[in-house]
Each structure stands twice: as structure tokens, then as C-alpha cells.
């Protein structure tokens, strides 16, 4: 765990904070979903980076599943906005 990793994690956390602010502020559902989509991409990237930092291979599989589920979730919400379900 050297200084470089801590700085990178700090930058990614800051990104997460901005996305969460947009998620809370709204103003419409679609804006919130955009923030959520962005957050899930950030989480996928972070999981893989943490897997490298802690030397755990299993994090890669977890992040792949997370990416698939996030994709399906956003598609479902988009479909709902369109009036499909």
C-alpha cells in the first residue's frame, strides 16, 4: 500500500462524491439514473483496482457480475421510462 494507491483511491472517491451529489439533487428521475449509471461504472473500476491492491483475484469476477447487473438495471429503468413495462 504505497502513497500512489492512496492518491488514486482519493481521486476516485471524490468522483463518487460528485455523482452522489447529483443523485441527491435530481431534479428528475432520469438525472438520478444517469448518476447511478456513472456510479456503477466507478464501482466496477474501483473493485478491480482494489483487487490489485489487495492481491485478490476474486474481485475481478465480482466486478464483472456487477457490471452485467448494473447494465441490466439501467436498461430496465430506461424501458420503464419509455412506458414499456
Amino acid at each position: 500500500m504505497n502513497v500512489f494507491f492512496i492518491i488514486i483511491m482519493g481521486i476516485i472517491m471524490l468522483a463518487g462524491v460528485f455523482a452522489v451529489i447529483r443523485f441527491i439533487k435530481g431534479p428528475t428521475t432520469a438525472d438520478r439514473v444517469v448518476a447511478l449509471d456513472n456510479l456503477s461504472t466507478i464501482v466496477v473500476a474501483t473493485l478491480i483496482f482494489m483487487g490489485f491492491v489487495f492481491q485478490r483475484f476474486i474481485y475481478i469476477d465480482v466486478s464483472l457480475i456487477y457490471a452485467v447487473l448494473g447494465f441490466i438495471g439501467v436498461l430496465t429503468i430506461a424501458r420503464y421510462l419509455e412506458g414499456g413495462i
Binding site: 466496477v44 464483472l64 439501467v74 429503468i77 430506461a78
Partner: peptide
């Protein structure tokens, strides 16, 4: 190789999901 798979998946899925969102939002 596994990271390459995830990169390809992100490169394909991210534009599709935001495209679907834009269409859905226009309909609302």
C-alpha cells in the same frame, strides 16, 4: 485476458445503456 473481457464489455454496454436512457427520457 480477463481485464480485456471486462474492457470490451464496458465499451459495448455503456453507450447502449445511455442511448436507451436518452430515448426513455425523451418519452417522459
Amino acid at each position: 485476458f480477463k481485464t480485456v473481457i471486462i474492457i470490451i464489455f464496458i465499451a459495448i454496454s455503456n453507450p447502449i445503456s445511455s442511448h436507451a436512457l436518452a430515448r426513455g427520457a425523451y418519452k417522459t
